[in-house]
Each structure stands twice: as C-alpha cells, then as structure tokens.
C-alpha cells in the first residue's frame, strides 16, 4: 500500500508554545483518517502543516513520496474543506467550484461542465448561479466540498467539516462523506473533536493531546484497547479505573479501562468491594445505562433494557471477567 502522507518528527513551535511535538504518522492511500483531540491538542496545526498553511519548525513531511517542507499550498496536490467553508462571497456557486480550473486555464466550456459534474456529485445540480449567501449551511458545506474535489486532489483535508451543522444534517453528511470517499478512493484526512464522529467515519484514528499523538489505531482498537488514561477518558464511554481499585478486585495494581457492556449486575449485596448503589439510570432504547457507586468509585454498566434493570437507589453487586480489564499506562 502506498503511503499518501508521511510525517517524521514534525515539530511546530509558535514562540514558546510547542503546538506539534515530534509527530510521527503515516497515512495510507485511500484511507479515511481522523485526527481526534480536544481543542489546542495540535490536530488542526497538523492538518495545516499538511495543507501547507503552516511550515514545520523541524521534521520531514512527504506527500506521495515527495518532500513537501517549504512547498507553498498552491503547489501541493492537496485540497482543503475549511471549517467556515471560506466560499468566495463575490463569486456564484459555479465560479467558486470552477476557481481552481480557471487558475489552471481550463477552457471555459470544459471548466463549467466539470464544475457542474462535481456539483451534481454533491447533489447540488442547478445551484450554480446562486450566491453563497443564498445557501443554507449544509448547502455551503457541499459547495466547499465540490470546490475542493474539482481539482481531483490526491488528499482531501477536512477541518471540522461538520461542526457547524445541526445533528440531523451532520449524521446525513457523515454517511455521504463516507460513501463519497469510498467511491472516489481519495485519501480523506479530517479533524474533529467529536469522538463519535471519528469512530463512525474513520478507518483509522490518531488521538492528539498537548501536541503529541497518544494513540493511532482503528476505531475498534481505540475503543477496546486505549493506550493510556487520556485516550480512554477522551474517547469516553469506557470506565477508567484507578490502580487501587484494580488491585483490590484483581490483585495487580495498574490503570485499566473496562467497557460498560462487559459488566454484569445482580441485585443485593455480595463481595464488599463490588457492592454498591445505583445512582443513575439512563434509558437509551435497546439498552439502559446505569451508574453504580462502589464506595466512591463510579462504574457505568450497559444492560439490555427491560424488567431486569435495577432501580435507582437499589443495592447491587457488579461482576466482570478479569480478562475484560484492559490495562494501560498512566499518561493522564
């Protein structure tokens, strides 16, 4: 498999601040890759380094085998969908989409037929004569996508592409982006702070924190085997257990993560360390999530909805297979 984008020890400093701290990353051709992290974690800077808006302070960046440090954005075969879409307000939709073709001096007729074809692909056929100001947020997003794709880039970068859309539209666009990427076979790299979005869309995810990559892996690996406390905490749904709790229940001290669905719950008191009170009960449809307080340590468990789910305030004993515990290092 060809490597589309390769970063070797990429570092970016802004004065005293280390925005990217020796990032090593290889992204394969045709991959749908997510950069996930809280704000200020360096994920957007990383994207901007690949786009060419930022130059690395040190390190090597290659795009399809060609070194790219110092190459300006207009000489890279990489296009970006901006968070605020950045559509040109003085041009109508078709001229926005055809902008890069105009720069490449493609003859007018061909320019517009290509732009029209891409607009059709993002389901905006017939919107060419409108101004960006006359479109809804979702439509502007599609125009931004069409404008970036018309150039047939080898890599498409998306900066929080769905952040400004409402939930319903976001879910719809997630699916469309995914199928578009499959159809075109282009490498998509997208930045998001929404772990659900990263999980559902990406082939692989890099979790960023404080300018470093904490873990790279498939959504499954990130979910089942978080490499550190930070990843388990940020990705969210797993229980993060401190060493003393793990020592008491399994005998060996270390941080561990435990998936809520690996926990079974029985009514009544049992082994003291594993007996607690149900403090919250969230109905999620097919499943119900309960929170059990074990003398200060809270555990989330996901149970099939129905009569078996204990009520709030009831005393229960939790149990889990020690092999379901995933031990991890202590990086906060």
């Amino acid at each position: 498999m060809t490597t589309a984008v390769s970063l070797k020890a990429i570092t970016r400093r802004f004065g005293e601040v280390l925005a990217l701290d020796a990032i090593d990353l290889d992204i394969a051709e045709g991959e749908f890759f997510a950069m996930l992290g809280p704000s200020g974690s360096g994920k957007t800077t990383c994207l901007r380094v690949i786009a060419g808006f930022e130059q690395p302070s040190s390190g090597e960046l290659s795009i399809f085998g060609q070194r790219a440090e110092g190459v300006p954005p207009y000489k890279r075969n990489v296009n970006t969908v901006f968070q605020d879409y950045a559509l040109f307000p003085h041009l109508n939709v078709i001229d926005n989409v055809a902008y890069s073709l105009m720069l490449r001096k493609v003859p007018v007729a061909e320019r517009y037929s290509q732009a029209e074809a891409v607009l059709d692909m993002v389901k905006l056929a017939g919107y060419g004569m409108r101004r960006p100001g006359q479109l809804s947020g979702g439509q502007r997003q599609r125009v931004a996508l069409a404008r970036a794709l018309v150039n047939q880039p080898k890599v498409l970068l998306l900066d929080e592409p769905l952040g400004a859309l409402d939930l319903k539209l976001r879910e719809q666009m997630q699916e469309e982006l995914k199928s578009l990427q499959k159809r075109l076979g282009i490498t998509f790299i997208f930045v998001t702070h929404d772990q659900g979005e990263a999980m559902s869309m990406a082939d692989r995810i890099a979790v960023f924190n404080l300018g470093k990559i904490m873990q790279v892996g498939t959504p499954e690996e990130i979910y089942l085997k978080p490499a550190s406390r930070f990843v388990a905490d940020f990705v969210g749904s797993s229980n993060v257990l401190p060493p003393d709790f793990v020592a008491r229940t399994t005998g060996k001290a270390s941080w561990a993560s435990l998936r809520p669905e690996a926990i079974t719950v029985t009514a009544g008191a049992g082994q003291p360390d594993l007996t607690g009170t149900v403090v919250a009960r969230n109905y999620l449809g097919a499943t119900t999530r309960i929170t059990v307080d074990l003398g200060g340590q809270r555990l989330h468990a996901v149970l099939p909805s129905g009569a078996g789910v204990p009520l709030e305030g009831s005393v229960v004993t939790v149990d889990f297979d020690p092999s379901a515990l995933h031990r991890m290092d202590d990086t906060p």
Binding site: F53, T80, P89, S100
Partner: peptide, 24 residues
C-alpha cells in the same frame, strides 16, 4: 480563510490578490 482557500486551490499571491482580495 478566503486567502488560504484561494492559495489552497492553486492561486499564488498575485492571483489571490487579483481574484479574491481586490474583488472583495
């Protein structure tokens, strides 16, 4: 980001000035 978008789409500084900044 309009200026960055223009450069991203293949315009150098001069073209960006002519096609994006000046009209705006």
């Amino acid at each position: 980001s309009l200026i960055e978008a223009s450069m991203d789409l293949g315009a150098d500084q001069f073209q960006t000035f002519r096609y994006v900044i000046l009209p705006n």
